[in-house]
């Protein structure tokens, strides 16, 4: 098969085309001087993105397992966390951590607030994804493991979770795109991310259409890259894990 006809490659080509178009647009409209600024903004966006996903990927399984297997106190704590963060929006959470925490004498760097708020937000959604995937692993797997005299936690670690990961990857792909989109909110707590830079450049140059179009293209390219990464991961993870009849 022609390497370039593989859908994954097409995603890469589309992403690069977005970045190229953004750069060309900047050059053509006299915004070339602002490109370094935009790149710095992309750096901050990427930092929040990586930090947030790291928090989410750690928090989600912990919360999910607490909700599934914890004692009643731990379970309710997990449910409280999940429902609170899913029931209010990322912006409310961001503002709450930013404006309210100082009242308790805790003053955090805006970057820390951003990573914590967005990571916990996506982590709450991720917890439900993890829970769904764990529950989707067939009951027979548990029974087979206990027939081999494995403990519950051994079964979970060695049998159930490895299968659940594969099931979760597409849903995580969507969540990471939601996270990327949510990173634009950090501009509202004074972090100089891509959106913040866009507003700044807009105020300085008044080239509104051009600036926001460029930024739109960059976000589009970034989310295509995320989709690409997740598809690659999915392909790698599903080797040797062909599941049941049908799939």
């Amino acid at each position: 098969m022609n390497a370039l006809s593989h859908p994954h490659w097409r995603l890469l080509v589309a992403a690069l085309a977005c970045f190229a178009a953004a750069f060309a647009l900047a050059s053509a409209t006299g915004l070339a001087r602002s490109v370094p600024e935009l790149l710095r903004g992309i750096g901050v966006t990427a930092t929040v993105m990586f930090g947030g996903s790291a928090v989410a990927i750690v928090v989600a399984p912990v919360a999910a397992l607490c909700k599934l297997y914890g004692g009643s106190a731990i379970r309710w704590l997990a449910i409280g966390y999940i429902e609170t963060f899913r029931g209010t929006s990322a912006l409310v959470q961001l503002f709450w951590l930013f404006f309210v925490l100082p009242h308790f004498g805790i003053t955090l760097e805006p970057l820390t607030v951003a990573i914590a708020a967005l990571g916990l937000n996506i982590g709450a959604y991720g917890a439900e994804v993890v829970r769904g995937a764990v529950l989707a692993v067939p009951r027979g797997q548990w029974e087979a493991a206990s027939a081999l005299n494995m403990t519950q936690s051994q079964t979970l670690r060695r049998v159930v979770l490895p299968q659940a990961w594969v099931l979760m990857i597409p849903a995580w792909g969507n969540l990471l795109i939601e996270l990327l989109k949510a990173t634009s909110l950090v501009s509202l707590i004074t972090l100089a991310d891509l959106t913040f830079k866009a507003q700044q450049i807009n105020q300085n140059t008044l080239q509104t259409v051009e600036v926001f179009s460029i930024v739109l293209l960059v976000y589009l390219g970034l989310s295509l890259l995320i989709t690409l990464g997740m598809r690659q991961l999915e392909r790698r993870a599903s080797f040797g894990l062909a599941r049941g009849p049908g799939t």
């Binding site: 795109i177 990327l180 989109k181 949510a182 990173t183 634009s184 909110l185 501009s187 959106t195 866009a198 507003q199 807009n202 509104t208 259409v209 926001f212 179009s213 930024v215 739109l216 976000y219 589009l220 989310s223 295509l224």
Partner: peptide, 21 residues
């Protein structure tokens, strides 16, 4: 696809600041 993969905030700015142009 474009609407779903880009931030609502940017879309909001585009509508609010760009339409007047």
């Amino acid at each position: 696809e474009v609407i779903r993969s880009t931030p609502l905030l940017i879309q909001l700015f585009l509508l609010y600041y760009v339409m007047p142009e």
